[in-house]
Design a binder for these strands. Sequence first.
DNA 1: CGGGCGCTTGATTTGAATCAAACTGGGTGG
DNA 2: CCACCCAGTTTGATTCAAATCAAGCGCCCG
Lengths: 227, 227
Amino acid sequence: MQQTMECAAFFGAQLSPEKPHGEADASAAMMVAGRVSRWRRNEACDAVIARGAVACVLSGAVRKFAPRPSGQRQIIDLALAGDYVGFAPADPVFFLEAVSNDTQIISFTREQIDGLAARFPAVASLMQHCAGDAIRRLEHHLLVQGRITAREKVGAYLTAMSRRVKTNGTNTIVLPITRYDIADHLGIAVETVSRAMTVLCRRGSITLKTPRDVEICDSSMSSDSDW
Amino acid sequence: MQQTMECAAFFGAQLSPEKPHGEADASAAMMVAGRVSRWRRNEACDAVIARGAVACVLSGAVRKFAPRPSGQRQIIDLALAGDYVGFAPADPVFFLEAVSNDTQIISFTREQIDGLAARFPAVASLMQHCAGDAIRRLEHHLLVQGRITAREKVGAYLTAMSRRVKTNGTNTIVLPITRYDIADHLGIAVETVSRAMTVLCRRGSITLKTPRDVEICDSSMSSDSDW
DNA sequence: CGGGCGCTTGATTTGAATCAAACTGGGTGG
DNA sequence: CCACCCAGTTTGATTCAAATCAAGCGCCCG
């Protein structure tokens, strides 16, 4: 997914979880309708999700955030390859930025989506499904934000990432974002993120090969006292 | 809305924000398809949103939460009359409870919704719209959760409620939930909520006629340093 | 090679949790 | 009818986790 991808295969896989018919056409139609754009690290790409539009991350990752007067950013959503953003009516409070170099996005206007959904039931159900995913992502994030201790937040973030990032069979993941981003995502200070990592290391819950390469040894770390 | 309501008028208003045709049929169909249930304060009504189902609050209010081992509840969503819940695939982590006596809910199965949406475009677009609303509610909640100080959280909660609750023209609102619920909603302690209220009173930002009746005097309180 | 960014660690401060206790009002039972 | 009880709320004292302030290290990139 990180490398240049086969869009057809990409949408095909998303569109046909159960129904084996019609998704080829739907996939082709989505490719034709959508506008693909490419962004570099930290570039603002918020224009692509104006007014009810929808966008899908093809490669790289994207963060949605609200800036704070203090200079902090409240990162409310992190969309990885395959994730959709922008179902809610666009709120001027939020910005969208590429997290990594060579982030590719395919975006659709509200009209395009409605048109596609009308012609292809598979697209309509994909959109429903993806809106549900977005809701689930937000709910989960809310749960993590509400966790009491900073260690739990960081642990929960790591285990969530290990589920969302491709792992090549190992339980080693490459964190898509910096410590600063993690801090803004979890609503805690960078130093606290760093300290939490250190503690988790000492406990043997994780191993840091480099700051970005994390091996998850004990996936029960997300709870000092579990849910 | 609090009293026994005219369902037809209710759905009619929701269905016809712009299109004046067909919504009468759609409204009638929704009333016939949906199952209305009635709950008392603190009753669990989670059964109604199983497996992709959708429910709409007719009167009263409903809270969606995840219990914590500590006995705390993480309230991730508060649905008032007119709000919809349950677009995300039901997650066993979450429970649904009535907040007030005489809470009425109308619930639809996934199949019912799909059927209605297929027959009535207005219903399909209503569902999209409501999913978007749910996302916005969650995003806003995430923003509030991420706010730094407890006073800001409480202030933001109050201003949000003043927008969502009917106010009879005045800027006095009746809080739909207890301090305990507010605490679990904002991820802070009851005592902290109470103290924050007291401080906001002393500052003149609000006036407490009774603990539940709040008059909003200065709606800029939601920010010690605004967004 | 210098500079800045990302990361880590240490010392200090502080806001909120926790522990503890008292007050209120509405509802129930004697 | 009154006494009691209890859920909800408020206030105070103490503790503690995380923010803040401060500094140093490694590394990539220009």
